[in-house]
Amino acid sequence: MTMLKTEPSFPNPDAAYEMLVEGHRGVSEAESAALNARLVLILSNHIGDLAVLKEAITLAKKAG
């Protein structure tokens, strides 16, 4: 049973994407990678569910 939501959650997906992009504007590649790492940790904790996290990792790997 899949628990990871992959259906659209944001009524305005463009705004969400833009926000992420904005976060990375004007920073170096290393800073950007570090920012992503912090974001992943913050969002993982917010999800707080190992099964969902695992599905997310699997999906991310599969898509790459």
Partner: peptide, 23 residues
């Protein structure tokens, strides 16, 4: 290198977020 980035992210967050302290 990537593991180090993730590890440092935990350390950087630790003073700001309790969840990171646990990591």
């Amino acid at each position: 290198k990537q593991e180090r980035v993730l590890r440092n992210a935990v350390l950087q967050l630790a003073p700001h977020a309790p969840f990171a302290r646990g990591m």
